[in-house]
Design a protein around this nucleic acid. Structure first.
Length: 642
RNA sequence: GCCAGCAUAGCUCAGUUGGCCAGAGCAGCUGAUUUGUAAUCAGCGGGUCGGGGGUUCGAAUCCCUCUGCUGGCUCCA
């Protein structure tokens, strides 16, 4: 007999060699049907693997993240089996589960797999799933595994085995039906668990993530234990598609792109610019309260500036080529960063420790060469405006300034309706020191300053090694939008490197020169990226204070256009902005068009309203609110502002 | 940049195996209508079928190339 400890601390005895599935059955039949895999002493096992010793056991179902991962990983194997059946000779790379489904990297040889082939692959998968083939775990020696894949002619698996050899890891094969794969597992008990599958897209992916190596075909999919769950997933995808900022941006006339102007260069239309301006004004006010000073620096700078800053060395090869003056042959670069300019502002005159911290802010537009395949709507562009600032302070002030910035960022994000955010601490990768500039001493104190400050405010964080910028560690804010998707927004970075390179100094209380520390920060990140996320988060229904038009007056007929114009003017006096829809259309039509434009308030005016000097108020997406006078509406409106 | 795919009117899309002056709905314009909470009616205009080159008696349709876009990969100061 063995002792099994459950997550709630309860202990029960089972026969040696019982499986998680056996144990689930002993509890309830319903539970046994839901069990996908199990955590045994913290390690995820298949539910059918015998447990030989005392263990802690947690049964995993579809509701557990690890349960889903097991399910999707098994689905990847199922897809591989289908691919092998349809494309004989196909070779396999790796096929893991992801946050939302699974993929398999394959080398289809002479075949080309495109989305047109999805239906037949999905059909095959379902057909194979219905065969209810068990996933059989087969521990095997390295030599046997090598022999098997040599015979099969799958060089990718052989390479993976080579790696395992170095790690001296145990080798297991898994088989379901006719398909055998090198795999650590675990898997669902049998293929019949997989009831619904959907292949989502196909893309190229470099073998082992190395752009110098073979490009594989990566087939993405998702699967579910119930058809209904697939249907719900498809509805969610449809909702995301409707909220796509590229689509809404065009519909709401916020921004555009032009082939002639160039890829990745957004053009802001009047309504988009209004939105952007209001965001910037809000941040300006918050920054003013916190002692920031705004500056403006040029869009180009001499190449030497970036040689000094180190950016040329690091990114020169991958940036827009420098431009030269026609006579003197001087080299200038499009500004890729604002910090070197701000360093020059600091260096412009001597500083006392009494001046510090000096907080220099700029809505600085920068230009960076992004590879053509990387461009994406407003979220990845070649020209964008950062809500940038650089804080020059003494080493002793770093932590306090960092805390101030954390506070500002939190205020900004909550004002925007992002309540659900975490922070990612990005540190050096100790394995590749050559990727970073600056001394160990500087890095260590910068990294600990971040970690301490974050701990102090009690922010939920994750830590990533190797994600730091080349000049310093950083803290990135990750927000979750209304559809639960994660986005990276603002950033805070500590930098001991640039002050060194620009030889910045301040005179300390000891009358000696000292080197200041620089903190880079951008709560929005960039206006472009932030607005793309805001659009998708709100579905184009912006908070009232940001809406380009806050109301539309809709006259019942032309006869009330004059009264409507009066209403608009009157609201203007209350700083409420909007327009009159004076087209000779029926009221139903005007309401429909205004609803689609997502204007928050519709003020319907006809004979009754003119007579009583009122407006009939309708809230976008909600409907009739009631009739009130214009000043009553203004008051009501103020109450609705955040 | 790499792999796969896409590009027809302002927008959403039709356009059969290459074959009569390339179509629809919405939007636009003109006129009629004067409307009470999500689409009033009629008429009209609008496309070098993304650009360039080729194959063919004939190309929106087949081939090459460039540009842009989509999904990933790599990258992201």
């Amino acid at each position: 007999m063995i002792n099994i400890t459950f997550p709630d601390g309860q202990k029960r005895q089972y026969e040696k060699g019982s499986t998680a599935l056996d144990i689930a059955r002993s509890i309830s039949h319903g539970l046994a049907q839901k069990v996908i895999s199990a955590k045994v002493n913290g390690e995820v096992w298949e539910a059918t693997r015998p447990i030989e010793h005392d263990a802690r056991l947690q049964l995993l179902t579809w509701d557990d993240k690890d349960g889903k991962m097991t399910f999707w990983h098994s689905s990847a194997h199922l897809m591989a089996e289908a691919l092998e059946a349809i494309y004989p000779g196909v070779k396999f790379g790796t096929g893991p589960a992801t946050e939302s489904g699974f993929y398999y990297d394959v080398d289809p040889g002479d075949h080309v797999i495109s989305s047109d082939d999805f239906p037949k692959i999905e059909q095959k998968m379902i057909e194979l799933a219905r065969q209810k083939n068990e996933y059989v775990r087969k521990p095997i020696s390295l030599e046997e595994a090598v022999g098997f894949f040599k015979e099969k002619g799958d060089e990718y698996k052989l390479e993976l085995l080579e790696k395992r050899k170095e790690e001296a890891a145990d080798i297991t094969l898994y088989q379901q039906g006719n398909f055998i794969d090198l795999c650590r597992g675990p898997h669902v008990p049998d293929t019949s668990y997989i009831k619904a599958v959907k292949l989502t897209n196909v893309a190229g992916a470099y073998w082992q993530g190395d752009e110098n190596r073979q490009q594989m075909t990566r087939v993405y999919g998702i699967s579910f234990p119930k058809q209904k769950e697939l249907d719900e997933y498809l509805v969610m995808i449809e909702e995301a598609r409707k909220r796509d900022h590229r689509k809404l941006g065009a519909e709401l006339e916020l921004f555009m792109f032009s082939e002639r102007v160039g890829a990745g260069l957004p053009i802001w239309l009047p309504k988009g610019n209004q939105l952007r301006d209001r965001l910037m004004n809000f941040l300006r006010q918050e920054q003013e309260k916190r002692g920031y000073q705004l500056v403006i620096t040029p869009h180009i700078g001499k190449k030497d500036l970036y040689v000094t800053s180190g950016h040329w060395e690091k990114y020169g090869k991958d940036s827009f080529r420098p431009m030269t003056t026609p006579r003197e042959g001087e080299e200038f670069m499009l500004k890729p960063m604002n910090c070197p300019h701000h360093c020059e502002i600091y260096a412009h005159r001597p500083h006392s420790y009494k001046d510090l911290p000096l907080r220099i802010a700029e809505f600085g537009t920068v230009y960076r060469y992004e590879q053509s395949g990387e461009l994406h709507g407003l979220s990845r562009v070649r020209g964008f405006t950062q809500d940038d600032a650089h804080i020059f302070c003494t080493p002793e002030q770093v932590k306090e300034e960092f805390l101030n910035v954390l506070d500002l960022t939190k205020v900004v994000l909550s004002k925007m309706g992002f309540e659900n955010f975490t922070a990612q601490i990005s540190l050096r990768d100790p394995e590749t020191p050559e990727k970073y500039l600056g001394t160990d001493e500087h890095w260590n104190s910068a990294e600990s300053a971040i970690i301490e400050a974050v701990k102090e405010v009690g922010l939920k964080t994750t830590t990533e090694l190797g994600e730091a910028a080349f000049y310093g560690p950083k803290l990135d804010f990750m927000v979750k939008d209304a559809l639960g998707r994660s986005w990276q927004l603002g950033t805070i970075q500590v930098d001991y490197n640039l002050p060194d390179r620009f030889q910045l100094e301040y005179i300390g209380a000891d009358n000696q020169p000292h080197r200041p520390v620089m903190i880079h920060r951008a709560p929005f990140g960039s206006m472009e990226r932030f607005i793309s996320i805001l659009i998708e988060h709100t579905g184009g229904k912006f908070p009232l204070w940001l809406a380009p038009d806050q109301f539309a007056v809709l006259p019942i007929s032309d006869r009330f256009n004059d009264y409507a114009a009066g209403v608009e003017k009157q609201l203007g006096l209350f700083d409420i902005r909007g327009y009159v829809d004076s087209r000779s259309e029926k009221i139903g039509r005007k309401i429909r068009d205004t609803e689609l434009k997502k204007v928050p308030f519709m003020l319907i005016v006809g004979e009754k309203e003119e007579e009583n000097q009122t407006v009939s108020v309708r809230r976008q997406g909600e409907g009739d609110v009631g009739t009130m006078t214009v000043s009553e509406f203004a008051e009501y409106f103020q109450g609705q502002l955040d």
